[in-house]
Design a protein around this nucleic acid. Structure first.
Length: 528
RNA sequence: GCUCCGGUAGUAUAGCCCGGUCAAGUAUUCCGGCCUUUCGAGCCGGAGACGCGGGUUCAAAUCCCGCCCGGAGCACCA
């Protein structure tokens, strides 16, 4: 049996696969279907020559986990169908949701990190003339009007299902008003372009919705176009036009946009267009973290968080910094799918996925949190520990430490938590090193006597296994925890060769991402 | 309040359209065991759910009605 296994393993993987395909094709089949089962089919994908999806953020903040669903599902569905994935910046509010130049880039970076690189990119503030063109067309065709009513007065009318006085003015008059709007003859708030819908629609929010408004860009210049434009499209107008103009076939977005679809459908009818497939997924939350831009922005402004990548935030920047992998996030999102029900994600699931991704690939080191000294006496000779960087990969190498007793004694660091769990008379195994018998436990130190080297003996005695660092072969280490607390301790000397961005496992402590290496080590904690 | 949309174990999800094979599957979590020089991973076993009440039916997680609960929208925001 072993001989046969050996023979098979000696063959190259491609050869193994060929043989299986030849003799047991059903084995491969099963494997394949299981992997592809991941996402449910996209509705009506076959009705379109090419599937086109888009992610359309406002660059007024960094991205966070709440956007992961739109990004990953849009991207992955486009890829599954060999379609196109578009990134579109919706930066049409220079006043209330002011875009910030640095966020255009941070969003691009986040998408790249998430392995969701867009095929095309658009910025709405580049497209203002296009929106004007369609505004004019709608006006000309009597499908829109320039409304100069006071918002309050308009609301009263619309609630009563009555047209406001502006609605039925002839197209020529509308175009006249429109050019006055563009000329700056109206001030901010004095005129708005509305798309005609059904005044009797059961939802008042749908009736004659606003499409373009005036913003005083002298006062609130747009970061990209300055004061060049004073008339800016609202969400439903810009987004609705762009989705058609860019050939988007499938819109995947949060259910807060459900009413927006109804509104936009009226415009599509005016223009003789067909509305894309729209999927509205539920709200995504994660326990104990704010997934709201305004809360994040507010916390930053008030100094509650250090920065956009503060470990307490669920921004992609923060997750990245902690060593959460994009693969784990993708798994989480594919798991959740595109149901309309709200979901409350738990960090536990994210961590579990991340751990399984990381565990086979990352190297192991010892980090002693809250160190106390353990002095071991009675060591007969120098003893060398060779500890694998990964238990299942001896070929990756090892760290090597030699304890050299002076008058039979050596000093080691062990963690306070381990010290508290042991007491005089107990036997303890220092991993990969030797066994000791504890003699005295004090407040800051432990004294023990060398017992034996045999690991087997430790097992038989049921001795606890603890990790350690030789005093002198060490470096200070700070670990930023997810709650922004700092765990202080000592890492083994081999950690000096670590590089920023590496993710390692500190045994019996957890996975961390290295932030800085100099005389000391700084790392961010991911999870156990 | 009005207009929509939801509700399967602690969490997430499959099943619901096309009722039976669902005394409800999967992942994670928790517990136990095995394995292992980590309290990690792996392996084995176990715990844990159809919001409530009616109805239709031989049969309902699945269909119908009512209720309850949750969420979203009701901006000259996106």
């Amino acid at each position: 049996m072993n001989k046969i296994v050996g023979e098979v393993n000696a063959l190259p993987a491609s050869e193994q696969k060929r043989i299986i395909e030849e003799k047991w094709p059903e084995l491969l089949q099963r494997e394949k279907t299981e992997e592809e089962k991941r996402l449910p089919p996209l509705p009506n994908a076959e009705k379109y020559p090419m599937v086109v999806t888009r992610f359309s953020p406002n660059p007024d903040c960094v991205l966070h986990l709440g956007s992961a669903r739109a990004i990953i599902l849009s991207h992955d569905y486009a890829r599954i169908h060999r379609g196109k994935f578009i990134l579109r910046f919706e930066d049409t509010d220079p006043k209330l949701k002011r875009p910030v130049p640095e966020f255009y880039d941070s969003i691009r970076e986040d998408l790249k990190w998430l392995e969701c690189k867009p095929d095309e990119e658009y910025i709405q503030s580049d497209r203002i003339p296009i929106y004007y063109e369609y505004a004019e067309k709608l006006l000309k065709d009597g499908n829109a009007y320039v409304c100069t009513c006071q918002p309050q007065a308009f609301r009263m009318r619309i609630l009563a299902q009555e047209p406001c006085p502006c609605r039925n003015l002839p197209p020529e008059e509308q175009l006249e008003r429109w050019s006055r709007m563009l000329n700056g003859e109206y001030k901010e708030g004095e005129a708005v372009l509305r798309v005609k819908t059904d005044l009797t629609h059961p939802n008042p929010a749908v009736r004659d919705w606003p499409a373009l408004r005036i913003i005083d860009t002298e006062k609130f210049p747009h970061p990209r176009t300055g004061s060049k434009y004073m008339v800016w499209p609202l969400y439903n107008f810009a987004c609705g036009l762009d989705d058609h103009l860019m050939g988007v076939t499938h819109i995947i977005r949060g259910k807060e946009h459900f009413t927006n679809m109804i509104r936009q459908e009226y415009m599509y009818r005016h223009l003789g267009w067909r509305y894309p497939e729209a999927i509205h997924y539920g709200r995504l939350k994660i326990k104990g973290a704010y997934l709201s831009k305004s809360k994040i922005v507010q916390g930053i402004r008030e100094g509650q968080y250090w920065s956009w990548d503060d470990p307490r935030l669920a921004t992609f920047a923060a997750l990245r910094k902690r060593g959460i992998t994009p693969a784990a996030i993708r798994k989480l999102i594919l798991d959740v799918g595109l149901k309309a029900a709200d979901v409350v994600l738990s960090w536990e699931n994210l961590y579990a996925y991340n751990r399984k991704i990381l565990d086979p690939h990352v190297t192991r080191y010892f980090f002693v949190k809250d160190p106390v000294q353990l002095s071991v006496s009675g060591i007969p000779k120098p003893i060398t520990a060779r500890i694998r960087l990964h238990p299942e990969h001896p070929e990756w190498g090892f760290r090597e430490y030699t304890v050299t007793p002076e008058e039979g004694k050596v000093l080691l660091w062990i963690s306070r938590a381990d010290m508290e769990a042991i007491s005089a008379g107990k036997t303890v195994r220092l991993m990969e090193l030797f066994n000791v018998k504890v003699e005295k436990v004090e407040v800051y130190a432990v004294e023990a006597k060398f017992l034996s080297e045999s690991y087997q003996e430790a097992r038989e005695l049921g001795a606890p296994l603890i990790h350690w660092v030789i005093v002198g072969a060490d470096m200070p280490c700070k670990i930023i925890m997810p709650n922004a607390a700092v765990a202080e301790g000592i890492a083994e000397a081999a950690c000096k060769r670590l590089k920023p961005d590496m993710i390692v496992q500190f045994e019996r402590f957890g996975f961390v991402r290295i932030e800085k290496v100099n005389a000391g080590l700084t790392a961010y904690y991911a999870h156990k």
